[in-house]
Simulated scan of single mutants.
Amino acid sequence: MLATLGTRPNNVAGKISLALLSLFIIFSALSLARPQKRNSHDERKASGIDIVIAMDISYSMEIADFNVSGRRVQRDFMSREVVKEFIKHRPNDRIGLIPFAGQPYQESPITLEHQWLLEKIDDVKPNEELTQGTAIGSAISASAIRLDKRKDTKSRIIVLITDGSNNSGNISPIQAAEAANKLGIKVYTVAIGTSDGRLQRQVNPAQEFDTETLEKIAKITNAEYFRAKTTEQLVEAFTVIDELEKTERTKQVITTFKDYHHYFTFAAALSLLGGLLVLTFHHPPAPE
């Protein structure tokens, strides 16, 4: 077939046929090379550790008694920033959020979608529409109920952040801690802020930190109590919690391949068909 193309190199049909058959060879070679596109993505596997962050958002959390680079910042801002860093360090843990003031609020389910959770934390702030007070017992109870719904976990943890003592809610902190302990849930307690920090609009400006109760909560549930008066102490508290509750960091890489050789096979077939059609209808001159 190729030999016949050289009989009349100046013939238009011959040139077209040669071009089409050359394309056939090129496309065939590319098809045999089997071109592919590789797609890889990471699949996270839950570590089996479920965590609920119970975060105090009462009015007193607006007190600016933390120092960051020489600037005074509010307790609620500092707690949000440290919690976000904590979440970023635990990508394989399912984490939920329950803010509380005079009562707990169901803000976030326990999830592996941490980017969504980080965005929710930014929205958790003291609000005049919230029931005011500090319902520590109710916050622990609500967090424990949320964790107890998970039956496939090997470890369940509550991290409680507060700057006051229990003065609201229908259950005492000790009762809530004992109930959590029966469910196998640890409650890490973090008392945040300085004892002399106060807001003028606080209902009870003489209220002090109930460190004794927070220590008992942690002890009952075989966890730890932390007192964070400075930014460094708050960061250290969450660093210790992170180290105490080690998580298995597993990552599965899934790779998929998409073949493109059939496109070149189709192009080669068209080129060959075109070349054959040209040769069929434009025969080279035969010898007499």
Rank of each mutant, 00 (worst) to 15 (best):
residue 243 E to T: 10
residue 247 T to Y: 03
residue 156 R to G: 02
residue 167 N to W: 00
residue 251 K to A: 11
residue 240 V to Y: 09
residue 246 K to T: 13
residue 191 A to M: 11
residue 259 D to G: 11
residue 152 D to K: 04
residue 261 H to A: 13
residue 221 T to S: 11
residue 254 I to P: 00
residue 236 E to M: 09
residue 156 R to Q: 11
residue 195 S to V: 09
residue 224 E to I: 07
residue 236 E to K: 12
residue 241 I to G: 09
residue 223 A to R: 02
residue 263 Y to N: 10
residue 196 D to F: 03
residue 195 S to C: 00
residue 179 A to Y: 09
residue 191 A to D: 02
residue 193 G to T: 01
residue 236 E to A: 15
residue 225 Y to Q: 09
residue 154 K to H: 13
residue 242 D to Y: 06
residue 204 N to L: 02
residue 196 D to H: 05
residue 219 K to T: 13
residue 182 K to W: 01
residue 233 Q to N: 08
residue 193 G to H: 01
residue 166 N to F: 00
residue 254 I to V: 15
residue 201 R to Q: 13
residue 199 L to Y: 06
residue 224 E to T: 13
residue 159 V to T: 07
residue 184 G to N: 05
residue 253 V to G: 01
residue 263 Y to K: 12
residue 232 E to N: 06
residue 168 S to D: 05
residue 257 F to N: 11
residue 180 A to H: 07
residue 195 S to H: 06
residue 205 P to V: 04
residue 186 K to G: 11
residue 261 H to W: 15
residue 175 Q to G: 15
residue 257 F to G: 05
residue 218 A to H: 08
residue 196 D to T: 12
residue 235 V to R: 13
residue 188 Y to N: 10
residue 249 R to K: 15
residue 219 K to I: 09
residue 157 I to M: 08
residue 195 S to D: 14
residue 199 L to F: 03
residue 171 I to P: 07
residue 187 V to E: 03
residue 228 A to M: 03
residue 167 N to Y: 00
residue 230 T to H: 02
residue 212 E to N: 12
residue 261 H to G: 05
residue 212 E to W: 00
residue 261 H to E: 14
residue 244 L to E: 13
residue 244 L to M: 11
residue 174 I to D: 10
residue 263 Y to V: 14
residue 178 E to A: 10
residue 248 E to S: 13
residue 185 I to R: 02
residue 168 S to Y: 00
residue 251 K to S: 13
residue 242 D to Q: 14
residue 208 E to F: 01
residue 261 H to D: 14
residue 198 R to I: 01
residue 165 S to T: 07
residue 176 A to V: 05
residue 173 P to I: 06
residue 239 T to A: 12
residue 216 K to A: 14
residue 164 G to P: 08
residue 262 H to T: 14
residue 262 H to F: 15
residue 191 A to H: 04
residue 206 A to W: 00
residue 193 G to L: 01
residue 241 I to E: 05
residue 231 T to V: 09
residue 158 I to F: 07
residue 235 V to A: 10
residue 224 E to P: 01
residue 152 D to G: 02
residue 185 I to A: 08
residue 196 D to P: 01
residue 214 L to H: 06
residue 230 T to C: 06
residue 262 H to I: 14
residue 236 E to H: 10
residue 219 K to N: 12
residue 246 K to V: 10
residue 165 S to A: 14
residue 188 Y to Q: 07
residue 258 K to C: 06
residue 157 I to F: 02
residue 154 K to D: 11
residue 154 K to P: 01
residue 234 L to W: 03
residue 167 N to P: 03
residue 212 E to C: 01
residue 176 A to E: 03
residue 154 K to I: 11
residue 245 E to L: 06
residue 250 T to C: 00
residue 213 T to I: 00
residue 230 T to E: 05
residue 226 F to W: 07
